[in-house]
Amino acid sequence: MNYAIIAAGEGSRLAQEGVALPKPLVKLNGIAMIQRLIDIFAKNNADSISIIVNEEMKQVQEYVKQIKLSIPLNIVVKSTPSSMHSFFELRDYLRKGKFCLTTVDTIFKEDDFTKYIQAFIADENADGMVAVTDYIDDEKPLYVDVDDNMKVTGFLDKSDSCKYISGGIYGLTPKAIDTLEACLSGGQSRMRNFQRQLITDGLFIKAFPFPKIVDVDHAEDIAKAETFLNS
């Protein structure tokens, strides 16, 4: 399994709220968020880990460059306008077999993630498996419509009937990269539009429910995330 971490955002809201560290280096229970992801991925069948960081975050660049792993660690330094563009910059590291992509501020429990990855590895039919949760604490949630077999039928900005929202963890196969490249060529710029296009292109995407996933977007979210992980 190849893993990828998008850590190219500016973290401007955290900075405006007095958080001195760049978002990837913000610590939860004493561990930098980016390090926590790397540690979890390394324990879950990682063949490689690829990371994109932006050009301005010199502290993050220095941090990731000193990391030593027994598997390939690919680092891309580039500022991008969106998560989808960051994914695009990592795509050449993800063309061989199944891969899992997430943003650096997506916080989940390790046991839940292991169950998810094992299910994705074992699934021989799906073109992808995305994490979903019925815990909604997002400013702009992306609702995920599923059928009775947890096949994703749509990604919606608004919904009164969907139980789940996207958790920001994307397990995919190389077929999804074709869709990604077409989206960029067509002028798309948002990750949620890429997800919609996966369904339009006929890819079989399944949803895997997590009890809870949280994002660290604001200073107050740091304490919330630590409480969640310790519960």
Rank of each mutant, 00 (worst) to 15 (best):
M1K: 08
N2M: 08
A4W: 09
I5Q: 08
G9T: 07
L14N: 08
L14T: 05
V19P: 02
V19A: 09
A20V: 12
L21S: 13
P22W: 04
I31N: 07
M33H: 03
R36V: 00
I40A: 15
K43H: 15
K43T: 14
I52C: 04
V53Q: 03
V53F: 04
N54E: 05
M57I: 08
M57E: 08
M57K: 15
V60T: 07
E62C: 06
E62Q: 10
K65P: 01
K65W: 06
S70Q: 13
S70Y: 13
I71M: 11
N74I: 12
I75L: 11
V76D: 03
S79T: 15
T80P: 09
P81Y: 05
P81H: 08
S82V: 12
S82T: 08
M84Q: 03
M84V: 03
F87G: 01
L90I: 08
L94M: 05
R95G: 06
I107F: 08
K109I: 01
E110Q: 04
D112N: 06
D112P: 02
D127M: 00
G128S: 08
A131H: 06
Y135F: 13
I136K: 14
E139H: 13
P141E: 01
D145Y: 11
D147H: 14
N149S: 15
M150Q: 13
K151I: 09
K151R: 15
T153G: 12
G154H: 01
F155M: 05
S159P: 00
S161H: 12
C162G: 11
C162P: 07
Y164V: 02
Y164L: 09
I165H: 02
G167W: 00
G168H: 02
G168C: 00
K175Y: 10
A176F: 03
D178I: 05
T179R: 07
G187A: 02
Q188C: 10
Q197E: 12
I199R: 06
T200W: 11
L203D: 09
F204D: 06
F204G: 02
A207S: 11
P209D: 11
P211A: 08
K212E: 05
V214K: 07
V214Y: 04
D217E: 15
H218L: 11
A219P: 00
D221A: 10
D221M: 01
E226A: 07
F228M: 12
